[in-house]
Design a protein around this nucleic acid. Sequence first.
DNA 1: ATAAAATTTGATTGACCATTCAAATAAAAA
DNA 2: TTTTTATTTGAATGGTCAATCAAATTTTAT
Lengths: 215, 215
Amino acid sequence: MNESEGKAKTPNEKSRKEKHSFIAEARREQIIEAAIQTLDEIGYVKASLSQIAKRAGISTALISYHFSDKNDLMNQLLMKLLERFTSYILGKVRQEEAPERKLDTFIMASLAYQGTHHARNTALIEIIFNARTPDNIPYYKLGDDDEDQIMYELQQILRDGQEKGIFGTFHVEVMANVIQGAIGEYMMNSNITSKVELETYSDELIDIVEKAIKV
Amino acid sequence: MNESEGKAKTPNEKSRKEKHSFIAEARREQIIEAAIQTLDEIGYVKASLSQIAKRAGISTALISYHFSDKNDLMNQLLMKLLERFTSYILGKVRQEEAPERKLDTFIMASLAYQGTHHARNTALIEIIFNARTPDNIPYYKLGDDDEDQIMYELQQILRDGQEKGIFGTFHVEVMANVIQGAIGEYMMNSNITSKVELETYSDELIDIVEKAIKV
DNA sequence: ATAAAATTTGATTGACCATTCAAATAAAAA
DNA sequence: TTTTTATTTGAATGGTCAATCAAATTTTAT
């Protein structure tokens, strides 16, 4: 295969290191934002390329030009959403020093993200619960790298607090999972969201966790 | 409109009170079981009527004969799965008297259901996170009637314990949500499932909750 | 046994889907 | 400017889907 023969290389085929043009990068960004909006509005099942294109104000063919296929688009979107969420949480948590402060911040920041970035969060949930790997394993059963980064940080906070004698004895992995579950439940279920204010939930959850980890 | 003119009434059009024939009921049951299997194996997105029919060993048209449309099938399946789950949990919980025992049983039974009815649980998750009401509201944002039944029971246990002075002071709705979230997180995420045994998780979660509700 | 009703299927319909492609347009390089 | 390359589109393509229908088969009622 000679590079110079045949059709022009499409952006989606380029290697990772090779950077896209400004135009291509802006277009990709636009498509990704439209995809977030589409997932938030009509959900993964109905989020066809034409629906995404409609919201972006472009043709469906243009999406195929910038992404190798729908799966590629969804994967890149998933990565971007996880990156944003992760950097937001870690950014806040790493400003704190003491394990108790780190833990409180972790909980507050996670819940606050739901309030400030509702569409992104919904899009994230839609992808995680619908998209599957080539082996047909849903992402929600996977526990992928970036989510692990969040979980890893949480577990580190808990271990650190235990080592410093600030927290008592408990099963770190289970405790971390309980905290994650409590956060996730509020983010997903609008039944509780409508009845309990975000700040109330945040405060109460911090109270509950405080009691559970007390030395 | 005269009842006697036109084609034969199909079972799916019959009113709720009117009961189906044995054959129709058995067939409906068979289709529902095949749907559970299909959702567990390939997920909601790929669970087409033909995939369900293939697993049931029947034609796709037969599904349309017994259910008015795909949405009808999924709704009936969702209701059946929720009923089974609800009656399993409530059956166990109501054998207990003391609030502490009821609470422990609630947690243990919820987690045990994951172990004993894995396919049902996966199917339930797949529907809740994918199916939507006609208004395009996903079920996971809805908090529907049967799920409310479970949530109601949990909150009643907590309130009862508080009134009897066995539990301390805490925000009942938040506490119930935390417990539900901790259970749901374990059921969905196979990352934790593979690292922590069901029984360990159950015991540890009970410990955590015990500390959090202590008077 | 015969007629009527219920059940089942294979083939068809019409809609939508992701993807491709040749042609048009815009941008960049020469 | 002219040539080359990148971007964009509208129109096809081939596939799958849910749902319908007439005809065949089975069950039930008479």
